[in-house]
Computed example of a mutant assay.
Amino acid sequence: MAEELLVVSNLKKYYPITGGVLGSEIGVVKAVDDISFSIRRGETLGLVGESGCGKSTTGRSLLRLIEPTSGKVYFDGVDVTALKPEEMRKMRRDMQIVFQDPFASLNPRHNIAKILEEPLIVHGVGSSAERRKRVEHMLEVVGLNSYHARRYPHQFSGGQRQRIGIARALMLNPKLIVADEPVSALDVSIQSQVLNLMQDLQREMGLTYLFIAHDLSVVRHISDRVGVMYLGRIVELATSSQLYTKPLHPYTQALLSAVPVPDPDDVRERVILQGDVPSPANPPSGCTFHTRCPHVMEECRTVRPPFQDVGDGHYVACHLYKTD
């Protein structure tokens, strides 16, 4: 078994809610609420869930683009949460992110050559000629041409801009890439091209991915293991084949039942959830899913279910599956 590159332990990210005349804290939004997982070297871990469940906050907290409230993040054996700013800056050579919106993440005033060269300049890598050569090489790697370096972001299509975003993340030869919904803004035909590109790059460069998405069919295509988030917590974590053939958590079952099937004769039972997603500022007690769960029991309302292995590395947080 490959060693673990990233280990996340009891990660929390709470945002204060202020009010009153003095602007004092009157509550918190629990964006990420005590989650733990690990990613093995060379693996792709998919993180799925509906909008607002804390997926993107988790990805950004790992890289300390936003500071976690509490918890530990170990990258390659180093406690990232304890690093000083200068140490963290050096660590970012090995930890990069691809953002959801490729246009918003690229500086419109800079041409592509300057955008791609910037990480190398910040970290003092190579001479001017070496950096220029690296930029041209990386454009070729992601399926663009070297002459594209002179153009500006607005002169590219969405798919091309996302390729540029991927190229920028790869400039420093990182070990881990957090891909924050990298294909959600793209057409379906372009999505498959970008996903295939990411898989090819993973094989060639030995990359490790945390792949954040809300489209379960996309995640199935690229992930080795998949974690399902609901209201700031991971409720199920399993290999891709386990999760898609035998989902255990009622929320995962509902998500998978909503995935469109290409075969019109393939009729399957649709799980319709009642009610709306509760507010992360005031999450339900016990199991946060109990307000919408079709199998709710009295215990679910008061006791938070442990996140436990129910066999073969299949983890679930649900009172329906007790191992003791």
Rank of each mutant, 00 (worst) to 15 (best):
F211E: 01
T252N: 07
G232S: 07
I212T: 06
L248M: 15
A254I: 07
S217D: 11
R203G: 00
G232Y: 08
L231P: 12
Y251R: 02
S240M: 12
H214R: 02
V267T: 12
L255E: 01
L248A: 13
L237M: 14
I222G: 09
L255V: 04
V235E: 05
G206A: 12
P262I: 09
T245N: 15
L243T: 09
L248R: 14
I212D: 08
Y244I: 08
I222F: 12
I234P: 01
Q202V: 13
F211I: 00
R220L: 01
M229Y: 10
I222L: 13
L207G: 01
Y230M: 06
S223H: 08
D224S: 13
M229H: 09
M205R: 14
R225P: 09
Y230N: 10
Q242W: 13
M205V: 10
L237K: 06
T208K: 02
L237T: 08
E236C: 03
D265V: 06
H249R: 05
S217Q: 11
S217Y: 09
D224R: 04
V228M: 10
G227D: 04
I234M: 12
L216Y: 11
D265P: 00
T239A: 02
S217C: 07
Q202E: 13
S223P: 07
Y230S: 08
A254G: 02
A238R: 08
V267F: 14
L243G: 04
V259K: 02
L216V: 10
H221P: 06
R203T: 12
M229L: 11
K246E: 15
H221V: 04
L207W: 04
G227P: 02
G227C: 04
E204H: 00
T239K: 07
E236P: 04
